[in-house]
Simulated scan of single mutants.
Amino acid sequence: MSEVLMDIQNLSKYFTVETNMLGKPVSFLKAVDDVSLTINKGEAFGLVGESGCGKTTFGKILVNLYQPTHGKIFFEGLEITGLKEKQRRAYCKDIQMIFQDPYASLNPRMTIGDIIAEPILINNLLPRDKVEERVIYLLNCVGLAQHQRNRYPHEFSGGQRQRVGIARALAVQPKLIVCDEPVSALDVSIQAQVLNLLDDLKDEFGLTYLFIAHGLNVVKHISDRVGVMYLGKLVEIAAKRDLYANPLHPYTQALLSAIPIINPEKKKERIILEGDVPSPIDPPSGCRFCSRCFKRMEQCKANAPALKEVAPDHWVACHLF
């Protein structure tokens, strides 16, 4: 039985779109809506979905960049939602984030040595005379040379800057790292290098990942379990092997059909989804995927399906099951 590191229960995040004359919210953008999942210690949990489905917002709630509208988050058995500032700081270093844009996430006026050293100094993890030694060690871990620590972010390539971001996340010895599309802004050849690096660091440092990505082809190489998100809700969760071999939700089937095949002689049926993604401000009343689903039924329009376990450790939110 796997040990649960983080337990997320009925998590929601609504952003106010419109207020009335009294300043009270009357319209919301439901970025994340009633999401529940567990992340086990030592695993890489992949979270995939189209742009705007709420993946990044979900990740930012976990690292305390956003406060949830509803729901609870338990980290190592302790509820961390609603904690006061001083209480929150005790766990903040245990949950770090690697951002999508490796340039915008780094201070252009600081050297990379100072960028990596800053969280160590803020959290008083080491004596000052030991910090530089730790910075050099972390640079070596991510494939950068120690003489590069005095350079600035603009002097590095995109892949190198993302390595700096990874080193900064590792600096405080976290237990969970939220990887927010860490390779989407990189060239394909560099993507493979960074994914391999993250995989190696996971074993070396005993890390747990929430790996956020657009496509199932990226998370396939690093994830142990995969969750598929659509318009703020989880529609399927399964072990990687089960999900790729037997996708149950029509949306997951469509995403998998879009992955290119290397062998040009092998034919693959592509599932083309009709219509556009509905607005998260005014989502459909029933199943949120109903308007685009190629297997929809009458009950899909009226009733939202609950996420339920239909096979061992395989969860799906669909009226077909």
Score class of each variant (00 low, 15 high):
residue 143 G to L: 02
residue 143 G to A: 03
residue 144 L to T: 00
residue 144 L to E: 00
residue 144 L to H: 00
residue 146 Q to G: 04
residue 147 H to T: 06
residue 147 H to R: 07
residue 148 Q to R: 01
residue 149 R to Q: 13
residue 149 R to L: 14
residue 153 P to V: 00
residue 154 H to P: 01
residue 154 H to T: 00
residue 155 E to Y: 02
residue 155 E to T: 04
residue 155 E to H: 08
residue 156 F to D: 01
residue 157 S to D: 03
residue 157 S to N: 05
residue 160 Q to D: 02
residue 162 Q to D: 03
residue 163 R to L: 00
residue 163 R to K: 03
residue 164 V to Y: 00
residue 164 V to K: 00
residue 166 I to A: 03
residue 168 R to C: 03
residue 172 V to S: 05
residue 172 V to Q: 02
residue 174 P to I: 01
residue 175 K to C: 01
residue 177 I to F: 05
residue 177 I to L: 04
residue 177 I to C: 03
residue 179 C to V: 11
residue 179 C to N: 12
residue 180 D to I: 11
residue 180 D to G: 13
residue 181 E to R: 06
residue 182 P to Q: 05
residue 182 P to S: 08
residue 182 P to E: 06
residue 183 V to R: 01
residue 184 S to F: 07
residue 185 A to P: 05
residue 185 A to V: 11
residue 186 L to P: 04
residue 186 L to D: 04
residue 187 D to G: 09
residue 187 D to M: 09
residue 187 D to I: 08
residue 188 V to A: 11
residue 189 S to V: 08
residue 190 I to T: 12
residue 191 Q to P: 03
residue 192 A to W: 04
residue 192 A to Y: 06
residue 193 Q to V: 06
residue 194 V to S: 08
residue 197 L to K: 12
residue 198 L to I: 13
residue 198 L to P: 05
residue 199 D to P: 02
residue 200 D to C: 06
residue 201 L to W: 07
residue 201 L to Y: 06
residue 201 L to G: 07
residue 201 L to D: 08
residue 201 L to N: 08
residue 202 K to I: 09
residue 203 D to W: 07
residue 204 E to Q: 15
residue 205 F to K: 11
residue 206 G to N: 08
residue 207 L to D: 04
residue 208 T to W: 10
residue 208 T to P: 07
residue 209 Y to P: 09
residue 211 F to M: 08
residue 213 A to W: 05
residue 213 A to I: 12
residue 216 L to M: 12
residue 217 N to S: 15
residue 218 V to C: 05
residue 220 K to R: 15
residue 222 I to G: 03
residue 223 S to I: 07
residue 224 D to T: 15
residue 225 R to S: 13
residue 225 R to F: 08
residue 225 R to C: 06
residue 226 V to Y: 09
residue 226 V to M: 09
residue 226 V to H: 08
residue 227 G to Y: 03
residue 227 G to S: 10
residue 228 V to W: 10
residue 229 M to E: 10
residue 230 Y to M: 13
residue 230 Y to N: 13
residue 231 L to Y: 09
residue 231 L to E: 08
residue 232 G to L: 13
residue 233 K to A: 14
residue 234 L to T: 13
residue 237 I to Y: 11
residue 237 I to S: 09
residue 238 A to S: 11
residue 238 A to C: 05
residue 241 R to L: 11
residue 242 D to H: 09
residue 242 D to T: 13
residue 242 D to S: 14
residue 243 L to H: 03
residue 243 L to N: 02
residue 243 L to R: 02
residue 245 A to P: 03
residue 245 A to Q: 15
residue 247 P to M: 06
residue 247 P to Q: 08
residue 249 H to P: 10
residue 250 P to I: 02
residue 251 Y to V: 04
residue 251 Y to N: 02
residue 252 T to P: 12
residue 254 A to T: 09
residue 254 A to P: 07
residue 257 S to Q: 11
residue 258 A to T: 12
residue 259 I to V: 14
residue 259 I to M: 13
residue 260 P to S: 12
residue 260 P to L: 10
residue 261 I to A: 12
residue 265 E to C: 03
residue 265 E to P: 00
residue 266 K to H: 13
residue 266 K to R: 15
residue 267 K to V: 10
residue 267 K to R: 15
residue 268 K to W: 04
residue 269 E to I: 12
residue 270 R to A: 09
residue 271 I to C: 08
residue 275 G to M: 06
residue 276 D to Y: 10
residue 277 V to C: 14
residue 277 V to L: 15
residue 278 P to Y: 01
residue 278 P to T: 02
residue 278 P to M: 02
residue 279 S to Q: 01
residue 279 S to W: 01
residue 280 P to S: 12
residue 281 I to F: 03
